[in-house]
């Protein structure tokens, strides 16, 4: 009985079907299945399969993102019950992410956020045009392990450095690691401003984040 449900959960993620994923999550709650079991034996199995097929070139980015969204939706349905039971999903780390001040480019940052979330991180997405202080405050508030800074314009790249300096000033470093990305951002720039993580794309960003967590 549960086995079929778990398989359907995995399928909903593989299909990137948010509605089905949410439905199945609700069904599992109705059946009294431990949300953590539902996640780990159902949805995570799907996400792992999508990840493997993406790596082997049989699935593509839109499928990966849709799977991530379905996973996120399912977890959101299960979260209130986990909170009630006092359990929580094992997370790899907490990430505060956003596009820096003066920059409204959204998509790269959002992709990274989705991939991190699907990859087992707790993600706090602050959106675009995020003031320096907001990154710092949020990082302190949630006890972030990683702050992710996106910039797509040469004239906003400098804000990545400013955020790192502000984190320094507030004494949040080095326990908060910083990842940077965006079209004009290079590995050299990341090194120069003291960012520990850099990736050119969203899938790579998850690996970098895992490395930063020592996972």
């Amino acid at each position: 009985m549960s086995k079929e449900l778990f398989e359907a959960m995995a399928q909903s993620v593989i299909q990137g079907d948010e509605e089905a994923a949410a439905d199945l999550a609700r069904q599992s709650l109705a059946q009294g299945i431990d949300p953590l079991v539902a996640i780990n034996q159902g949805f995570v199995v799907g996400i792992n399969q999508v990840g493997a097929q993406f790596s082997s070139g049989d699935m593509f980015l839109p499928e990966l993102v849709a799977a991530g969204e379905a996973m996120k939706t399912a977890v959101a349905v299960l979260e209130p019950e986990m909170a009630r039971q006092g359990t929580h999903r094992q997370i790899l780390g907490k990430v505060v992410i956003g596009t820096v001040e003066g920059d409204i480019h959204d998509i790269g940052k959002t992709l990274v956020a989705t991939m991190l979330s699907a990859g087992g991180f707790q993600v706090y997405d602050l959106g675009v045009d995020v003031p320096i202080q907001k990154f710092v405050e949020k990082a302190r508030e949630v006890g972030a392990d990683i702050v992710g800074l996106s910039a797509l314009i040469t004239t906003t790249m400098g804000r990545q450095k400013d955020v790192i300096e502000a984190l320094d000033d507030m004494g949040l470093r080095p326990q908060v690691k910083v990842m940077v990305g965006g079209a004009p951002v290079t590995r050299q720039w990341a090194a120069e401003i003291g960012a520990e993580g850099y990736s050119e794309d969203a899938v790579g960003a998850v690996n970098v984040a895992k490395q930063l967590m020592g996972a």
Partner: peptide, 9 residues
């Protein structure tokens, strides 16, 4: 078109 694998321009 964005790249199917990375999403990059």
């Amino acid at each position: 078109a964005s790249d199917l694998r990375s999403g990059a321009y």
